[in-house]
Amino acid sequence: MTVRTDLTALLRQIPAVAYALLLYGFIFLPVLVLVTFSFQESRVPVPPFDGPSLQWYQAILEDRRLMSALANSIVVALVSSAVSVILGFLAAFALARFTLPGSKFFQGLLTAPLTVSYLIIAMGLLITFNEFGVPKSLLTIGIGHVVINLPLCFAILYSQMGEHQRNVEQAARDLGANEWQVMLLISVPMLWPALFASFFLSVTFSWDEFIIAFMVSKFDVTLPVEIWSMLRSGLNPKTNAIGSLVFLFSFVIVLFLDLVVFRNRKT
């Protein structure tokens, strides 16, 4: 290749590179602004930047309400995700391994919540809890989060229960294992990556979910709801600081998922 064709090839790349840079800029602009001004020294997170200062990070650590919302979020995410994975696994196992009448219908029913807006699910739950006098609490938030995550876990796990596993399970059965032993000693270990993936996906969805948590909670709230109420005070570097931490946390989960779980599946 001559230098000249190299150069024209390079020149032809310019529009593509320029476009990509422009879009990456658009995608990253708000996040960069958010993180930068979380280190602001003064009380408003707008230019000029006068930091760096860690005082707003210290402020959120000393904020009782924020810290208890954080703890609530973690509890709700872990518990509701565990419930979603367990129920999803049992249902997927039942529909993949037993010939039940109407199994197509049940598949449709179990995945139906995926097609409905969270807002509508939230409203339905609010009205239902009101109608039956169920007090709004972390429990009701958790119930809502299982409603949105169960279909996801079920769909992921069901799609992973292939023929190969069925053969190994049959072999175990022939060797005298009972149904529980087959499920816990054969199916669960073989599905480990999918179980892990659906659990952590559920955790990130629950962790970030706002509208259901907002509508079916009262005194104990989760982190997104608490951040929401912080927004009423307008632009505030404290909101930047907690926002940056939340971003870091979600990012770590996703990175972990990508590196550990999905890398495993490929090999």
Partner: peptide, 26 residues
């Protein structure tokens, strides 16, 4: 078969109770 139904029931119940019923009530 009945074991299959037993495994399916919890998820089914959850979906009916906390998804279908709220939609109907709404």
């Amino acid at each position: 078969k009945s074991r299959g139904w037993a495994l399916l029931t919890p998820a089914l119940l959850w979906t009916l109770l906390f998804f279908m019923m709220p939609l109907l009530i709404m």
